[in-house]
Design a binder for these strands. Structure first.
Lengths: 155, 155
DNA sequence: TGATTACCAAGTGATTTAGTAGGAATTAAC
DNA sequence: GTTAATTCCTACTAAATCACTTGGTAATCA
C-alpha cells in the first residue's frame, strides 16, 4: 500500500476542480498556477484520473476539465487509487508456503490494517471536503470530523 | 506523509519480537529467517527503532533484541514514524505567501486528513496486535477491531 | 582466544517521483 | 480555413527512495 504526495497532488487538484468548476471547465494551466504543480505532471495525473472516469476533458479553446461524477460520488480513496494504485501485495502470492508461519500471520494482519485505512478514505467524499472548506474563513482551523471516525483522540 | 512497505517491515519485525521475545532476546538472524527480510536491512531498521528506544540491543553470544518498552506502550504509529519519518511537509514553509489562496486551503485540509490517519495508527498498540493474533487459530481470519474505530463500514 | 552477536558506513541496482521536451489531435474564434 | 488554445500522448531525465550487499568494528560469552 502506498499513500504519498502523488496522491496528495491529485486530491488537491480535484478539490480545485470541484471548487472552481461550477461554471464551465477548468484548465490544467489554471490548476497548475493555483497549486504550484507542473503542467505536464498534472497532465499525467489527469490521464490516470480520466481513465477511471473521475474527470472528463474537453479539448480546444474554452476547454478544460469537468468532474466525471458528482463530487459526492468521488471518494478520496477513488482519487488516490487512480493515481497511486493501492496495491497491498502479499509476499507469498496467494497462500503458498505460509500456512502457519509467523510471516503469513503478520501479513494478513497488516492487510486488515491497510483496509481499515482504505475504508476511512473511502468514507470521505470530495463533496465533504468542499463543504468543510467553504464553510470556514481563512484563519480558522477546518476540523475534519467525517463519517467514519467519531472518537479520535490524540496520542 | 508516507506509509509504505518499509513501515510494514518494521511492524512485522516488532510483532515477531513481541511474540518470540517473552523469554530472552531475539536475534535479527531469527527475525530475518522468520520474516524473509534481509539481515542487514533489518539492522538498518533496528538502528532507527533503537534510536527511538523502541528496542534495546544486547551484544555478544546469546544476545539479541528486547522491546524497549512494554508492547502496550508501543503504537504502530511509533514504529512507522521511527523508520519512515512521518513528515507532512507544507509546500509553503510556515505561512508565507499562501494567506488565502487555494493552495493553503487544500494543504491544511490534507494535513488534517493525515493526522486522522496518524491518530488511527497511534491508537493501535503492539500489544493489541499480539493479543489479536494469539487468540486466533491459523485458519481463522483475524479481525482487527481496535480502540479507535468501532463502526467501520465497507465502501 | 574464538565465536557470536549487535553496531556502523559505504555502495548499488531497481523503482518511483516530479518534472521536461516535443509533439499530435481536437475545437472555438477569427 | 487558418490560428490559437487546449487536451492528449510518448519519451526522456535528475533526484530520491527502496531493499539489499559488502565489509567491516565493538562488545560479550564460553
Amino acid at each position: 500500500m502506498r499513500l504519498s504526495t502523488k496522491g496528495r497532488y491529485a486530491v488537491t487538484a480535484m478539490l480545485d476542480l470541484a471548487i472552481n468548476g461550477k461554471n464551465g471547465p477548468v484548465t490544467l494551466a489554471e490548476i497548475s498556477e493555483n497549486q504550484g504543480i507542473s503542467l505536464s505532471y498534472l497532465e499525467q495525473l489527469f490521464a490516470a484520473l480520466r481513465s477511471k472516469e473521475l474527470v472528463r476533458g474537453v479539448r480546444g479553446p474554452g476547454g478544460g476539465y469537468y468532474l466525471g461524477k458528482s463530487s459526492d460520488e468521488i471518494s478520496i480513496a477513488n482519487i488516490i487509487c487512480a493515481v497511486d494504485e493501492w496495491v497491498e501485495f502479499t509476499r507469498c502470492g496467494g497462500r503458498q508456503n505460509c500456512s502457519g508461519g509467523a510471516r503469513c500471520l503478520t501479513h494478513t494482519l497488516w492487510d486488515d490494517l491497510s483496509s481499515e485505512i482504505f475504508n476511512f478514505l473511502a468514507n470521505i467524499s470530495l463533496g465533504d471536503l468542499v463543504r468543510r472548506n467553504l464553510g470556514k474563513k481563512d484563519g480558522e482551523e477546518p476540523s475534519l470530523n467525517v463519517v467514519a471516525n467519531a472518537d479520535s483522540q490524540a496520542a
